[in-house]
Protein backbone atom coordinates (compact mmCIF):
# COMPACT_ATOMS: atom_id res chain seq x y z
CA UNK A 1 0.00 0.00 0.00
CA UNK A 2 1.45 3.42 -0.87
CA UNK A 3 2.07 5.86 1.95
CA UNK A 4 1.95 9.62 2.12
CA UNK A 5 3.28 12.24 4.49
CA UNK A 6 0.78 14.65 5.95
CA UNK A 7 2.15 17.93 7.18
CA UNK A 8 -0.56 18.93 9.63
CA UNK A 9 -0.80 22.19 11.53
CA UNK A 10 -0.77 21.61 15.24
CA UNK A 11 -1.29 24.30 17.78
CA UNK A 12 -3.65 26.67 19.48
CA UNK A 13 -4.09 30.38 20.06
CA UNK A 14 -0.67 30.60 21.68
CA UNK A 15 1.14 29.31 18.59
CA UNK A 16 1.84 26.18 16.62
CA UNK A 17 3.80 24.44 13.91
CA UNK A 18 3.52 21.89 11.14
CA UNK A 19 4.12 18.28 12.15
CA UNK A 20 4.71 15.38 9.76
CA UNK A 21 2.80 12.11 9.97
CA UNK A 22 3.14 9.18 7.59
CA UNK A 23 0.15 7.04 6.84
CA UNK A 24 -1.08 4.42 4.35
CA UNK A 25 -3.14 5.53 1.38
CA UNK A 26 -5.88 3.13 0.31
CA UNK A 27 -7.88 3.28 -2.90
CA UNK A 28 -10.55 5.94 -3.03
CA UNK A 29 -9.36 7.56 0.17
CA UNK A 30 -10.08 11.22 0.88
CA UNK A 31 -7.96 13.59 2.97
CA UNK A 32 -10.37 13.35 5.90
CA UNK A 33 -9.84 9.56 5.99
CA UNK A 34 -6.12 10.13 6.31
CA UNK A 35 -6.63 12.65 9.10
CA UNK A 36 -8.84 10.16 10.92
CA UNK A 37 -6.26 7.45 10.50
CA UNK A 38 -3.56 9.69 11.94
CA UNK A 39 -5.91 10.56 14.78
CA UNK A 40 -6.77 6.93 15.60
CA UNK A 41 -3.22 5.61 15.31
CA UNK A 42 -0.80 8.40 16.13
CA UNK A 43 -2.29 11.59 17.57
CA UNK A 44 -5.47 10.77 19.50
CA UNK A 45 -6.09 14.37 20.54
CA UNK A 46 -5.76 15.87 17.04
CA UNK A 47 -8.59 18.39 16.66
CA UNK A 48 -10.63 18.25 13.48
CA UNK A 49 -14.22 19.22 12.83
CA UNK A 50 -16.33 16.92 10.66
CA UNK A 51 -19.79 15.44 10.45
CA UNK A 52 -21.38 13.88 7.39
CA UNK A 53 -18.27 12.93 5.40
CA UNK A 54 -20.33 13.25 2.25
CA UNK A 55 -19.93 16.88 1.27
CA UNK A 56 -23.30 17.89 2.65
CA UNK A 57 -22.75 19.49 6.04
CA UNK A 58 -19.78 21.75 5.35
CA UNK A 59 -17.92 21.05 8.60
CA UNK A 60 -14.49 19.78 7.49
CA UNK A 61 -13.22 22.89 5.72
CA UNK A 62 -9.44 23.30 5.73
CA UNK A 63 -6.59 24.36 3.49
CA UNK A 64 -5.07 21.38 1.69
CA UNK A 65 -1.80 22.17 -0.09
CA UNK A 66 -2.82 25.79 0.27
CA UNK A 67 -6.22 25.36 -1.36
CA UNK A 68 -9.44 25.82 0.65
CA UNK A 69 -11.24 22.48 0.40
CA UNK A 70 -13.69 20.18 2.10
CA UNK A 71 -11.42 17.41 3.36
CA UNK A 72 -14.16 14.82 2.86
CA UNK A 73 -14.42 15.61 -0.84
CA UNK A 74 -10.71 15.87 -1.60
CA UNK A 75 -9.57 12.55 -2.94
CA UNK A 76 -6.01 11.45 -2.42
CA UNK A 77 -5.59 10.59 -6.10
CA UNK A 78 -6.01 14.29 -6.89
CA UNK A 79 -2.92 15.12 -4.84
CA UNK A 80 0.72 14.32 -5.55
CA UNK A 81 1.89 12.01 -2.77
CA UNK A 82 5.60 12.19 -3.53
CA UNK A 83 5.77 15.42 -1.55
CA UNK A 84 4.23 16.11 1.88
CA UNK A 85 0.57 17.15 1.78
CA UNK A 86 0.00 20.18 3.95
CA UNK A 87 -3.25 20.42 5.88
CA UNK A 88 -3.89 23.57 7.84
CA UNK A 89 -6.89 25.35 9.33
CA UNK A 90 -8.83 28.09 7.56
CA UNK A 91 -6.68 31.17 8.03
CA UNK A 92 -9.45 33.76 7.91
CA UNK A 93 -10.77 32.70 11.31
CA UNK A 94 -9.25 32.68 14.78
CA UNK A 95 -7.66 29.33 15.62
CA UNK A 96 -9.11 27.15 18.36
CA UNK A 97 -6.89 24.11 18.04
CA UNK A 98 -5.11 22.25 15.22
CA UNK A 99 -7.54 22.22 12.26
CA UNK A 100 -10.44 23.75 14.15
CA UNK A 101 -11.22 27.46 13.94
CA UNK A 102 -13.71 29.80 15.57
CA UNK A 103 -16.33 30.47 12.90
CA UNK A 104 -18.84 32.08 15.27
CA UNK A 105 -18.55 35.47 13.52
CA UNK A 106 -20.54 33.98 10.62
CA UNK A 107 -23.37 33.03 12.94
CA UNK A 108 -23.39 36.48 14.52
CA UNK A 109 -23.45 38.13 11.10
CA UNK A 110 -26.45 36.08 10.04
CA UNK A 111 -28.35 37.18 13.09
CA UNK A 112 -27.99 40.82 12.01
CA UNK A 113 -29.75 40.18 8.70
CA UNK A 114 -33.46 41.03 8.54
CA UNK A 115 -35.23 37.65 8.50
CA UNK A 116 -37.62 36.29 5.91
CA UNK A 117 -41.11 37.75 5.85
CA UNK A 118 -43.65 36.31 3.41
CA UNK A 119 -46.48 38.11 1.63
CA UNK A 120 -49.97 37.15 2.80
CA UNK A 121 -50.98 33.66 1.65
CA UNK A 122 -52.36 33.35 -1.88
CA UNK A 123 -55.04 30.82 -1.12
CA UNK A 124 -57.82 30.63 1.43
CA UNK A 125 -56.19 27.57 3.03
CA UNK A 126 -53.16 29.68 3.99
CA UNK A 127 -50.84 28.39 1.27
CA UNK A 128 -48.90 30.06 -1.51
CA UNK A 129 -48.59 29.52 -5.24
CA UNK A 130 -45.18 29.80 -6.88
CA UNK A 131 -43.85 29.01 -10.32
CA UNK A 132 -41.06 26.46 -10.53
CA UNK A 133 -38.84 28.93 -12.42
CA UNK A 134 -39.11 31.45 -9.58
CA UNK A 135 -38.11 28.73 -7.13
CA UNK A 136 -35.28 27.57 -9.40
CA UNK A 137 -33.78 31.06 -9.47
CA UNK A 138 -32.72 30.90 -5.84
CA UNK A 139 -32.16 27.17 -5.47
CA UNK A 140 -28.56 27.85 -6.35
CA UNK A 141 -28.20 29.99 -3.24
CA UNK A 142 -30.10 27.56 -1.04
CA UNK A 143 -27.63 24.81 -1.95
CA UNK A 144 -25.06 26.51 0.29
CA UNK A 145 -23.77 24.14 2.96
CA UNK A 146 -22.18 26.90 5.10
CA UNK A 147 -18.66 25.51 4.86
CA UNK A 148 -17.35 29.10 4.98
CA UNK A 149 -14.60 28.40 2.43
CA UNK A 150 -15.76 31.50 0.53
CA UNK A 151 -15.29 33.52 3.70
CA UNK A 152 -11.85 31.96 4.12
CA UNK A 153 -10.54 33.26 0.77
CA UNK A 154 -12.24 36.64 0.88
CA UNK A 155 -9.41 39.12 1.31
CA UNK A 156 -11.65 41.56 3.19
CA UNK A 157 -11.95 38.91 5.90
CA UNK A 158 -8.67 37.06 5.47
CA UNK A 159 -6.24 39.95 5.17
CA UNK A 160 -8.18 42.89 6.57
CA UNK A 161 -10.04 40.94 9.29
CA UNK A 162 -13.17 43.07 8.88
CA UNK A 163 -15.46 40.33 10.24
CA UNK A 164 -17.66 42.76 12.10
CA UNK A 165 -17.98 45.30 9.25
CA UNK A 166 -18.43 42.96 6.29
CA UNK A 167 -20.67 39.90 6.33
CA UNK A 168 -18.73 38.21 3.53
CA UNK A 169 -19.73 36.13 0.52
CA UNK A 170 -21.58 33.36 2.38
CA UNK A 171 -23.92 35.80 4.01
CA UNK A 172 -24.33 37.90 0.89
CA UNK A 173 -25.54 34.68 -0.75
CA UNK A 174 -27.95 34.33 2.16
CA UNK A 175 -29.21 37.91 1.66
CA UNK A 176 -29.56 37.27 -2.09
CA UNK A 177 -31.66 34.19 -1.36
CA UNK A 178 -33.92 36.30 0.86
CA UNK A 179 -34.11 39.26 -1.51
CA UNK A 180 -34.96 37.08 -4.50
CA UNK A 181 -37.28 34.75 -2.58
CA UNK A 182 -40.60 34.76 -4.45
CA UNK A 183 -42.56 35.34 -1.24
CA UNK A 184 -40.34 37.73 0.70
CA UNK A 185 -41.56 41.33 1.11
CA UNK A 186 -38.69 42.89 3.06
CA UNK A 187 -36.07 45.17 1.52
CA UNK A 188 -32.50 44.78 2.72
CA UNK A 189 -30.82 47.32 0.43
CA UNK A 190 -30.22 49.90 3.12
CA UNK A 191 -28.79 47.46 5.65
CA UNK A 192 -26.62 45.87 2.95
CA UNK A 193 -24.95 49.23 2.53
CA UNK A 194 -24.82 50.41 6.10
CA UNK A 195 -24.59 47.28 8.26
CA UNK A 196 -23.43 44.42 6.07
CA UNK A 197 -20.77 46.35 4.15
CA UNK A 198 -21.57 45.11 0.63
CA UNK A 199 -19.36 47.91 -0.71
CA UNK A 200 -16.23 46.21 0.63
CA UNK A 201 -16.51 43.49 -2.00
CA UNK A 202 -14.49 44.44 -5.05
CA UNK A 203 -15.49 41.48 -7.15
CA UNK A 204 -12.28 39.48 -7.30
CA UNK A 205 -14.39 36.31 -7.50
CA UNK A 206 -12.08 34.24 -5.27
CA UNK A 207 -15.17 33.07 -3.39
CA UNK A 208 -16.81 31.69 -6.52
CA UNK A 209 -13.70 29.71 -7.36
CA UNK A 210 -13.59 27.77 -4.09
CA UNK A 211 -17.30 27.04 -3.62
CA UNK A 212 -17.73 23.25 -3.34
CA UNK A 213 -21.37 23.63 -4.37
CA UNK A 214 -20.37 25.63 -7.47
CA UNK A 215 -22.53 28.59 -6.55
CA UNK A 216 -21.77 31.54 -8.84
CA UNK A 217 -21.45 33.74 -5.78
CA UNK A 218 -20.14 36.95 -7.28
CA UNK A 219 -22.09 37.11 -10.53
CA UNK A 220 -25.41 35.73 -9.37
CA UNK A 221 -25.59 36.93 -5.78
CA UNK A 222 -23.25 39.80 -4.96
CA UNK A 223 -23.42 41.86 -8.15
CA UNK A 224 -27.26 41.87 -8.23
CA UNK A 225 -27.23 42.96 -4.58
CA UNK A 226 -24.82 45.78 -5.36
CA UNK A 227 -27.11 46.86 -8.20
CA UNK A 228 -30.07 46.77 -5.86
CA UNK A 229 -28.24 48.99 -3.40
CA UNK A 230 -27.40 51.45 -6.17
CA UNK A 231 -31.00 51.48 -7.40
CA UNK A 232 -32.53 51.97 -4.00
CA UNK A 233 -29.96 54.15 -2.24
CA UNK A 234 -28.20 56.13 -4.96
CA UNK A 235 -30.75 56.65 -7.72
CA UNK A 236 -30.77 60.48 -8.30
CA UNK A 237 -34.55 60.71 -8.58
CA UNK A 238 -35.12 58.71 -5.43
CA UNK A 239 -32.51 60.84 -3.68
CA UNK A 240 -34.27 64.03 -4.71
CA UNK A 241 -37.53 62.59 -3.50
CA UNK A 242 -35.91 61.80 -0.15
CA UNK A 243 -34.62 65.34 0.35
CA UNK A 244 -38.15 66.67 0.25
CA UNK A 245 -39.42 64.12 2.69
CA UNK A 246 -39.20 64.47 6.46
CA UNK A 247 -36.17 62.74 7.91
CA UNK A 248 -36.62 59.21 9.18
CA UNK A 249 -34.69 57.25 11.71
CA UNK A 250 -30.96 58.05 11.63
CA UNK A 251 -28.77 55.72 9.67
CA UNK A 252 -26.33 53.37 11.26
CA UNK A 253 -22.71 54.41 10.65
CA UNK A 254 -21.35 53.07 7.36
Amino acid sequence: MPTATFRIWRGDITGGKFCDYRTDVAEGMVVLDAIHRVQAEQVPDLAVRWNCKAGKCGSCSAEVNGMPRLMCMTRMNQLPIDAPITVEPMRAFPLIKDLVTDVSSNYRAKQRITPFKPRPPDAADGTWRMAQEDVDRIQEFRKCIECFLCQDVCHVLREHRLHEQFIGPRLLVHVAALEMHPLDIESRAEELRTVHGVGYCNITKCCTKVCPESITITDNAIIPLKERVVDECYDPLTKLFRIFRPARAPEAPG
Binding site: F116, G126, M130, A131, Q132, V135
Partner: peptide, 17 residues
Protein backbone atom coordinates in the same frame (compact mmCIF):
# COMPACT_ATOMS: atom_id res chain seq x y z
CA UNK B 1 -46.96 24.49 5.32
CA UNK B 2 -45.43 26.01 8.41
CA UNK B 3 -41.98 25.48 6.93
CA UNK B 4 -43.05 27.21 3.74
CA UNK B 5 -44.24 30.17 5.78
CA UNK B 6 -40.74 30.33 7.28
CA UNK B 7 -39.08 30.41 3.89
CA UNK B 8 -38.56 26.81 2.77
CA UNK B 9 -38.82 26.40 -0.99
CA UNK B 10 -40.12 23.08 -2.26
CA UNK B 11 -40.34 22.04 -5.88
CA UNK B 12 -43.70 23.01 -7.46
CA UNK B 13 -46.53 21.46 -9.41
CA UNK B 14 -47.56 23.12 -12.68
CA UNK B 15 -50.26 25.06 -10.83
CA UNK B 16 -47.74 26.38 -8.31
CA UNK B 17 -48.41 24.11 -5.33
Amino acid sequence: HELEAWGALFDRTSDGR
